[in-house]
Amino acid sequence: MQPIIEIKNLSKVFGSGDGKVAALQDVSVAVQPGEIFGIIGLSGAGKSTLVRCINLLELPTEGQVLFHGQDLTGLKDKELRMQRRKISMIFQSFNLLDQRTSLDNICFPLELAGVSRKDARKRAMELLEIVGLPDKANSYPVQLSGGQKQRIAIARALASDPEVLLCDEATSALDPTTTDSILKLLQKINRERGITVIIITHQMSVIEQICHRVAILDAGQVAEIGEVESVFSNPRSAAGRRLVSPEMALPFTEEDGPIARIAFNGNASEEPIIASLALDLGIKVSIMGADTRNIDGKAFGTMLISLPTDSEQKQKVMQYLKSHPGVTAEEVQ
């Protein structure tokens, strides 16, 4: 299938001379139509720059951004503005017009496109229904909570009937419950309208909850890219490991003895393994650190355990773990 958005060998350098910052280096990412694609990375990794390059709010220094195979970087100003209507964006700080009511905020993109006032208002009311805030039509942004503002921003983003929705830290300013409801709304929009969603975040939980695939961005480069379960259960890059289990990136000393890392990919629950290990082998291991999440009784994430110093016993443990379905294990020290 042709990707709906394809970023090809994209580089972005800010400033010049001594103050030069290479925010993105040779980034290539292909996003398929209809998927929810996550881009995760630490603060300063270049996530915002990357997403802003997609609709050319930021001009790439090098590389291409293809939308349905068409290179946006080559477009004239007017053509670019037409394409931008098909690629909507929502922001961490919502960016609503403070002097307009919710309804008029949602009408704004329609106004830009020359839709009549009457039609725009009708469409805006429908969108208010979709985001669940029909009673807030005449409220000004100052009268809304963060979650409500983001809902209005989403309605506004949907007004132009976009094919792609870019979300730059859209839930980072919200509390966990509100984050949850906004993510559910995004998921619903993706499912019901087939809109491709690209989510930028520094929170693993956001990616886990709704993304199909994820790219890990590290210091301006793509460290790895793949299905969310496989990347999170078994990160192959150092950046991926750091993200998945930050506390486990802490160095252990020689005194801690040999250590194994177990990755759970959602096909097993974590408790029985360590227990059955003790039962079946008569060997006790201790958990050095764990960053696992239990979703519907299935474990995702990683765990570090200390291995017996005796090499025969160690072998037994490793074999036991490796033979267990749903986990992968490797000796890390």
């Binding site: 931008r84 017009l97 870019l166």
Partner: peptide, 24 residues
């Protein structure tokens, strides 16, 4: 951020001035 949001919606310079900058 509001100006950027309007740009992301395809607003022209004139539209940004008359519909965003001055009213806001």
């Amino acid at each position: 951020g509001v100006i950027e949001a309007s740009q992301s919606m395809g607003a022209s310079t004139w539209q940004i001035v008359t519909k965003v900058l001055l009213p806001e």
